[in-house]
Simulated scan of single mutants.
Amino acid sequence: MQPDHMAVFHLWRFALPLLLLLSPSNAYTRISNESLRAIPGPGDDFNIKDGKLLAPILQPRVPGTAGSIKVQNHLIDFFKTALPKWDVALQNSTSRTPATGKKEIPFVNLIMSRDPPWATVGEVSRLTLVAHYDSKLTPVDFIGATDSAAPCAILMHAARSLDSALTRKWEAMQADGVGEGGFDNIEDHTGIQILFLDGEEAFVSWTDDDSLYGARSLAAEMESTFHPATSTYHNQISSISLFVLLDLLGAAGPKVPSYYKTTHWAYKKLAVLEQHFRDLSAFQSSGDPWFPDFNKDEDRWMGGMIQDDHIPFMARGVEVLHIIPTPFPRVWHQVDDDGEHLDIKTVSDWSLLITAFAAEWMDLDGFLEAAEPSQGGKETKPNKSHRVQGRTEL
């Protein structure tokens, strides 16, 4: 390239992510009913007594305690054994708390990610699915099934359900020559990461300093972890294309508002997917739609906000889709927020919905194969051509 052309090239590389963010209505590839049917349910893995995903999280897991370490190991072992193609990283910090005085409490965030095999540092954007795995110090023996054991299990199920489809899609793209050099479509550099955050709960009462311990630490570290100077995404936090935070999920009949105007389009995608699942009789739960703000007047926006793990990220410019019901579940911060008070049909349906949202974002239509994760099942071949269609909705 000539020097003048090179300058234009680099300008385009930096401008393109911003242009994509400013055009959320373009060419989002809707997932087909066939692919929705292919998404497996969790089956017995959400059994509260011995389900291999959910049951091990249903225990007190206050940061720095033995219960917290057990749940950390459960999450890590799952990805390392069942999903070895995912990268597993830990981000550590310590902090004093109002309940522990001068004692430094350890907080451990877990970052599970999978990127296209040709992706290089600074050239991949990631859909980011998030839940906190810690539980509250009080009341004694608080488990926090909706808060947020069930969301963690939902994300584990989503990762497992998407894994093989990601492999098939990326292998097909490589067969078409993607990643062999040069500047590919930005959609060819889309990955996914799951954050299990520690220390969301206040130890005594919610303040800016007594809450969000893990999220505050991770957001600051990601902001200060820079990529090479000519990268499309200049640091780790700018590579987050959408921060989807799950919290307080698992009670029957949730009503989730649309909190932020800039991600209302993504909220509507969830609402549409929910309706498609219900039209296909694929949901176990019944009742009113979960997303009542689907037709919200965007010209007269009254969003509201709930303090949660997204706050340190949103303060750094990250786009957030907050999936938390209002009103909160009846058992919120009560000792009976336990496995017995979960509505497992609703938890199972959330796992389908979050998986479908991520599959649609990652353009996996046609690469999902019908198979039950626990019992096995007959698989069907992908029904889509190798080259996936671009999506400019970030």
Rank of each mutant, 00 (worst) to 15 (best):
S32E: 12
Y28I: 06
P17M: 07
D45A: 08
A27F: 07
N47G: 07
I31L: 10
R37C: 07
S23K: 02
N47I: 02
L18T: 15
T29F: 12
A15D: 09
T29E: 10
S23G: 03
I31W: 02
D45P: 00
L22G: 12
L19H: 13
P40W: 04
L16N: 09
L19V: 13
R37W: 00
A38G: 09
S32K: 09
S23L: 11
E34K: 15
R37L: 13
A15F: 00
P40V: 05
S32I: 03
L22I: 01
L18K: 14
L36T: 01
S32F: 02
L22E: 04
L36C: 07
I39E: 10
P42M: 10
I48V: 06
D45Q: 12
T29K: 11
K49M: 01
G41R: 08
L19M: 14
L19I: 14
A15I: 04
I48E: 03
L18N: 14
S23D: 04
I31K: 09
T29G: 10
D45E: 09
D45R: 10
N33L: 03
R30P: 00
Y28D: 05
N47H: 06
L18Q: 13
L16A: 12
F46A: 03
L21F: 15
A38L: 03
S25F: 14
L36F: 00
S23E: 05
L36K: 07
G43W: 05
E34Q: 15
N26K: 15
N47F: 05
S23H: 07
N26V: 15
L36Y: 07
P42A: 10
L20S: 14
R37M: 06
L21V: 12
D45C: 01
R37K: 12
L16P: 00
A38K: 03
E34H: 14
L21M: 12
N47D: 11
S32Q: 09
P42L: 04
K49P: 00
N33R: 08
D44F: 03
T29V: 14
L20P: 11
E34L: 11
P17C: 10
T29W: 07
L20Y: 15
N26M: 14
A15H: 00
S35G: 10
A27V: 12
L18G: 14
L19Q: 14
R30A: 03
G41T: 08
P42V: 09
I48M: 01
R30I: 01
P40N: 11
A38Q: 03
I31C: 06
P24G: 09
L21K: 15
G41F: 04
A38R: 12
L16G: 01
L20H: 15
P24Q: 13
G41V: 06
K49A: 08
S23Y: 07
A38Y: 03
P24C: 05
T29A: 13
S23N: 07
G41P: 00
L21W: 15
L20M: 15
P24I: 13
S32D: 04
L20N: 14
I31Y: 08
N26Q: 15
S25I: 05
L19G: 15
A15C: 02
F46P: 04
P40K: 06
R30M: 00
F46C: 01
G43E: 04
G43V: 10
P42T: 02
P42Y: 11
S35E: 09
S23C: 12
